[in-house]
């Protein structure tokens, strides 16, 4: 067993609970002992892009401090937004002056720097590896045509990209390793509209319609995502007449292939299979 510190994030403990259970089960099968960070707090979900708003970095850095206290060097996130905020904050405080000012708020503790933030996708690619994924697959996807949707934070801004921002391939390789057929499509790296879903439903619906039509145009039976908010928008903000593509979280697809029993995933994969029949 290999231990790894784990930052769940709020959505995975509430509305997106289904995304967490199967994923952690699959990771256990792959030999990981998941250590959830004690007393973690919200990562902030969006990284503050101005220079003088230090307060917004206190929360994410506090989580890194707790990873440090666990004597772990790496922390795993399942949510792309948590990855983005934590990874960028970890980089932000590599500057000693900023770290000093933020540590003044974390008093009496102090973050020393150096914790690495990774996402499920990079764990599968860099640590588990595609070959091992394929070897451990118990319930192959039988050529199911799955379109990987990356969205933004795993690819942009460039210094925090987990893959080539213009032409990513990691998720496609994971889908293939699990026995599916990866379907790349033009909108796979374009934003879903994120938090605008609360205030500008119209904008997000337009985005979601484009993304789903683009994926269906490529012949996809299902979409796979890395972020609970993309997941929410792609399910809940479909304009009328949008193709009925099931959306799965990457970890759910993994859980299915590794043989985890999750009725929610089973029904989604079933829906994808039905949609697949309908297309052919």
């Amino acid at each position: 067993m290999k231990t790894i510190a784990y930052f769940p994030g709020c959505a995975l403990k509430d509305q997106a609970r289904a995304d967490e259970t199967g994923t952690l089960g699959a990771l256990a099968r792959l030999g990981y002992e998941i250590r959830e960070i004690p007393r973690w707090n919200c990562c902030g979900t969006v990284f503050s892009l101005v220079q003088d708003d230090l307060m917004r970095h206190v929360g994410p850095v506090r989580n890194l401090l707790r990873v440090q206290a666990m004597e772990e060097e790496k922390v795993l996130t399942l949510c792309a937004m948590c990855y983005g905020t934590l990874a960028r904050s970890a980089h932000f405080v590599e500057d000693p002056e900023r770290l000093r000012r933020i540590n003044a708020f974390l008093d009496p503790d102090a973050y020393q720097g150096g914790v690495e933030v990774i996402h499920l996708l990079t764990l599968l690619r860099d640590e588990v590896g595609y070959e091992r994924l394929a070897a451990e697959t118990r319930r192959p996807l039988n050529g199911l045509r799955v379109a990987p949707y990356y969205g933004c934070v795993l690819l942009r801004p460039r210094p925090f990209a987990v893959d080539d921002p213009d032409s990513p391939a990691a998720m496609e390789r994971v889908v293939e390793a699990l026995g599916g057929t990866a379907v790349p499509f033009p909108e796979r790296t374009e934003c879903c509209g994120t938090h605008l879903t609360v205030t500008r439903k119209d904008v997000v619906e337009e985005r979601v319609g484009r993304i789903l039509r683009s994926a269906r145009g490529g012949g996809a039976d299902a979409l796979v995502v890395t972020c609970p908010l993309c997941h929410f928008n792609l399910e809940e903000r479909r304009p009328a007449g949008t193709p009925d593509l099931p959306v799965l979280y990457l970890g759910q697809l993994l859980a299915w292939a590794m043989g985890e029993d999750d009725p929610g995933v089973a029904s989604l994969v079933g829906r994808a299979a039905v949609s697949s029949e309908a297309v052919r």
């Binding site: 959505a11 509305q15 902030g44 979900t45 938090h195 609970p228 908010l229």
Partner: peptide, 17 residues
């Protein structure tokens, strides 16, 4: 907010807007 949202949507909206 007019309905339940995932926390990440609400937090993002409040922080940006």
């Amino acid at each position: 907010p007019d309905r339940p949202y995932p926390q990440i949507a609400l937090i993002g909206a409040y922080r940006k807007l």
